[in-house]
């Protein structure tokens, strides 16, 4: 059933969604310290100013360390949980999975504060490692969700066929299951990396004196003079995340094409 006005509405809605992102590059190249109209002319100065800040590169390096570690650990934990949930029946399954997925619906402030309380109580120093601990907790549910759908689209008889043809459980996993869920693993790794990169609250409270990219950006907001260079940084980040997302989407679709399943669209 068609309602023609819907298309106009949807386009307007998309404009609303994209408005902040589209404004980013405009002001990143605008030759004015104030983010306001009318535009004052073209400059690449803000990019140079951003580039000149050593603190940015330290934060970036920290974010990469945190992001990559988180992505590997959360995806690994996700593989275990997704495999257990799609393949086995065992006592306490619902409760166990519920606890693993819980961080998806808990405010990050509450999680970070409760972890902080424990870390302080037992004297664990706050640094990048504690950020990683928090990020793995938050990212694992996303990994589980993505990987569960990857494992679910596997026909169980494929596994049985491999066993029937003489493979043991381990080689079945290696020769049949892993190649078929690989696209899911890659997209899980990319998405958990992106979430970790973007995460602020946990990084802010559990990082001690260490700064990640998001904490760095939050810090810069306090200095009006730094705002245009944040616009420049934001522009670059938006381009990067679009590139990352496109890659993730590519692998997801290839995975679907490979298993011959139907495309249901979307990551969530």
């Amino acid at each position: 059933m068609k309602f023609p006005a819907l298309k106009t509405y949807t386009v307007a809605y998309l404009l609303f969604l994209y408005a902040p992102i589209l404004l980013l590059p405009i002001f990143a190249f605008n030759d004015s310290k104030i983010i306001a109209f009318p535009l004052q002319g073209f400059t690449t100065g803000w990019f140079r100013m951003m580039w000149a800040d050593d603190a940015l590169f330290k934060a970036l390096r920290n974010s990469l360390i945190v992001g990559i570690s988180t992505s590997i650990m959360a995806t690994t934990l996700g593989i275990f949980a997704a495999r257990a949930s799609t393949r086995y029946a065992f006592p306490g399954k619902a409760a166990g999975l519920g606890l693993i997925m819980l961080p998806m619906v808990l405010p990050e402030m509450i999680m970070s504060m409760s972890m902080l309380v424990v870390f302080l109580a037992i004297g664990i120093p706050l640094n990048l490692f504690t950020i990683i601990l928090g990020h793995v907790l938050v990212c694992t549910p996303f990994a589980v969700a993505i990987l569960t759908s990857a494992f679910q689209s596997l026909d169980k008889s494929l596994e049985e066929a491999a066993q029937d043809l003489g493979e043991g459980p381990f080689s079945t996993f290696w020769r049949v299951i892993l190649p078929l869920v690989m696209p899911g693993i890659i997209s899980s790794a990319l998405i958990t990396f992106t979430i970790s990169l973007d995460e602020f609250i946990i990084a802010f409270f559990l990082g001690g004196t260490e700064t990640t990219l998001s904490v760095y950006i939050f810090g810069q907001f306090r200095f009006p003079a730094r705002v245009p260079s944040i616009m420049a940084l934001g522009t670059i980040l938006v381009c990067l995340s679009i590139a990352l997302l496109t890659t993730a989407e590519y692998f997801r679709r290839r995975g679907i094409a490979r298993t011959g399943a139907k495309d249901t669209g979307g990551f969530l």
């Binding site: 257990a84 306490g92 693993i100 961080p103």
Partner: peptide
């Protein structure tokens, strides 16, 4: 089957217990 399931789920589950359940209980 139950044992394999539990073995498989234990790494993420232990992690969630240590990093989520225990801190929330402390709180």
């Amino acid at each position: 089957e139950g044992a394999s399931g539990l073995t498989l789920i234990s790494p993420p589950l232990i992690y969630a217990v240590l990093m989520l359940a225990a801190p929330l209980a402390t709180m």
